[in-house]
């Protein structure tokens, strides 16, 4: 398999042509296929940052594991946070099929050379935040992720299929949590409204800058890595979320939000992109804390890795001796 095969075209143009034809036919690119450098780099960057988001995303909700209001809520939250870890693993696995190394990717995250979703740089102040993250943040993630199940890169698309199946549980547990709180005391309802007020706009920012300010999108869409534009997905998300907010009995913090009869869409007010820029560049409320904890998890647990390695070596040695 490593020896060059004479029949294979070595000419880059021919390889590019074959790649283009695969994309045009809406077939999947698989790990050992030839692919343009830009395609590989875009995928490594996207998949790695997605993986980092899943791993860092364990923190804001994990903060409530020891303070969950009941055993039922605690078991649910534990399962959800464990899923986020699993999602990170699926994605690092996909990134590795492109030649990346997951320990190296983790180092890049900790050294802040690679980023993660800006949404996780906001703190979770009350238990209502756990519900709102499930409903709004995971809801936005689902909007982004469902089309990625048809991404042109096979391993990424397959990882996304697994993830999407599990995200549905995440969103529903969040919404159910909020329904329970809305049926509770006045104070609990106020907590839910407060959480919605804080998370609504950052959720809209999860879809990224407006289309006319998103130059990379066109190439990603041409490559079939991305299937819909930022604004398209954002609008879809707002249209889905407004009736859910109405059913829940909360107010979305946007005085400009209104139903547009003509287009059949909910129109929303301007997004504060200056805030988004600040959070992305590391000045969000929790950026430093997120990275500090990820670094501690790597460094403080290094001895476990080393012990397991030592055990495996010793064990392998014993087997060999026994066989001899």
């Amino acid at each position: 398999m490593s020896a060059p095969t004479l029949d294979r075209p070595t000419d880059e143009a021919a390889l590019q042509q074959r790649f283009d034809a695969t994309i045009a036919a809406d077939r999947r690119i698989e790990p050992r296929d030839w692919m343009p450098d830009g395609y590989r780099k875009t995928l490594v960057r996207q998949i790695a940052q997605h993986a980092h988001s899943e791993i860092i995303g364990m923190q804001p909700e994990g903060d409530w594991l020891l303070a969950a209001p009941s055993l039922r809520r605690k078991a649910i939250l534990l399962a959800k946070v464990q899923d986020e870890a699993g999602h990170g693993m699926y994605l690092y696995s996909a990134a590795e099929t492109l030649g990346a190394d997951r320990a190296d990717l983790t180092d890049k995250l900790i050294e802040q050379k690679q980023k993660y979703s800006s949404i996780f740089n906001y703190p979770t102040l009350t238990y209502a935040d756990v519900g709102v993250i499930g409903w709004l943040v995971d809801g936005a993630a689902i909007c982004n992720q469902v089309p990625l199940c048809r991404s042109s890169y096979g391993p990424y698309a397959r990882a996304m299929i697994r993830i999407c199946k599990e995200e549905s549980f995440h969103q529903r547990q969040g919404y159910e949590l909020l329904m329970t709180m809305m049926g509770g005391t006045e104070e609990q309802r106020a907590m839910v409204q407060d959480a919605v007020d804080r998370w609504w706009w950052p959720s809209l920012m999860m879809f990224g800058p407006p289309d006319d300010d998103s130059p990379n999108s066109a190439q990603s869409m041409a490559w079939g890595i991305k299937r819909h534009s930022n604004d398209e997905l954002r609008q879809r998300y707002v249209d889905m979320s407004v009736p859910q907010a109405q059913f829940l009995g909360v107010t979305l913090p946007d005085p400009d939000l209104h139903w547009d009869e003509e287009t059949g869409h909910w129109r929303f007010g301007p997004i504060d992109w200056a805030e988004f820029k600040q959070v992305v560049s590391g000045n969000g409320p929790a950026n430093a804390e997120r990275i500090r904890r990820r670094r501690a998890a790597r460094d403080d647990n290094a001895w476990v890795t080393e012990a397991a390695t030592a055990y495996a070596r010793k064990h392998a040695g014993a087997v060999t001796e026994g066989a001899a």
């Binding site: 997605h50 180092d107 050379k113 993630a141 920012m205 990224g208 991305k226 988004f276």
Partner: peptide, 26 residues
């Protein structure tokens, strides 16, 4: 920045390195 990465918007500037380097751990 763009909306890559499923979980939301992330930067895509040239400062984001993607080339693999030999693993330091594991």
């Amino acid at each position: 920045v763009t909306a890559e990465g499923g979980h939301g918007a992330i930067p895509t500037g040239p400062e984001v390195p993607v080339a693999p380097k030999p693993a330091a751990t594991r």
